[in-house]
């Protein structure tokens, strides 16, 4: 019995010494910077390099998208809103490709389904609405639900939102307040809490702007031509009414 009592104590002391020894070794290895040392990454300062296969935010390269909607079919959470339309050259293209990142579970089924590999998962994982320009220069559109995607922000508006978002509540002026009210969720959720759903790269924004400008010019030119044609037709009609005999003269319709 005495021996058992002593043995209990001896075993306790032994395992205590072994344990203390191993923690001491851990501490020594940590301080001396060995392989089993500290594995902490001081995150915002040090960033981990994400592997190529990392399933981060979804990104769709719209120029390659054929609007087959296989991704939407593969998606288990229905986070895609995709619309297609025919453009002026009667070519089918994606007019709307929105991903609700609040729903996305980053499972990657959509990217496996994509036949053209235009839908990919990028390396980023940071979703900071204030600092939304990621490494690739992509920008988030601010909205919470796909049905509010009409509130699109591009170019200067995104910059403005970023500026306004970083202000403190007391520093937001009346004009900015109105701007925020206009783009804000009607339910009143703070804009800062919203997640982005889709990207445009800076280049794409430029392209879209240029294209829009082009279309605008074309439209104006068309309107001008139409007006000119109408004036001409009017004049001709007047001349016709006056002459009443020149019915065979062909009206020169401008080609749209």
């Amino acid at each position: 019995m005495l021996l058992a009592w002593v043995r209990d104590i001896v075993e306790g002391v032994e395992s205590f010494v072994v344990g203390m020894g191993s923690t001491a070794r851990f501490a020594y290895e940590n301080w001396s910077g060995k392989a089993t040392g500290a594995m902490t990454l001081e995150y915002p300062a040090q960033k981990q390099a994400m592997p190529a296969a990392f399933r981060g935010h979804l990104f769709n390269n719209v120029s390659n998208c054929i609007t087959c909607k296989l991704c939407a079919k593969a998606c288990p959470v229905d986070c895609f809103v995709i619309e297609g339309e025919r453009n002026e050259e009667n070519k089918f293209r994606t007019s709307r490709f929105d991903i609700d990142l609040t729903k996305c579970i980053y499972c990657g089924l959509c990217t496996r389904a994509c036949p053209t590999d235009c839908l990919t998962m990028q390396g980023g994982f940071e979703l900071d609405p204030v600092n939304t320009v990621n490494q690739r220069g992509q920008r988030f559109l601010f909205t919470q639900r796909p049905d509010q995607l009409d509130v699109r922000l591009e170019g200067a508006e995104v910059d403005r939102l970023l500026r306004v978002s970083s202000l403190k509540p007391g520093e937001v002026g009346a004009e900015d307040r109105a701007f925020l009210d206009r783009i804000e969720d009607p339910r009143g959720t703070a804009i800062i809490a919203k997640f982005g759903v889709g990207y445009y790269t800076a280049d794409e924004v430029k392209q879209v702007d240029a294209r829009r400008e082009e279309l605008k010019k074309a439209k104006e030119a068309q309107a001008a031509a139409a007006k000119a044609a109408a004036d001409k037709a009017k004049a001709e009609a007047a001349a016709k009414a006056a002459a009443d005999a020149l019915a065979s003269a062909p009206a020169q319709e401008p080609k749209p």
Binding site: W31, T36, A38, T40
Partner: peptide
Amino acid sequence: KIAAAMQRRIGPST
């Protein structure tokens, strides 16, 4: 700090 050293961490550092 000691706990961090034994646990492969850094401890208060910022």
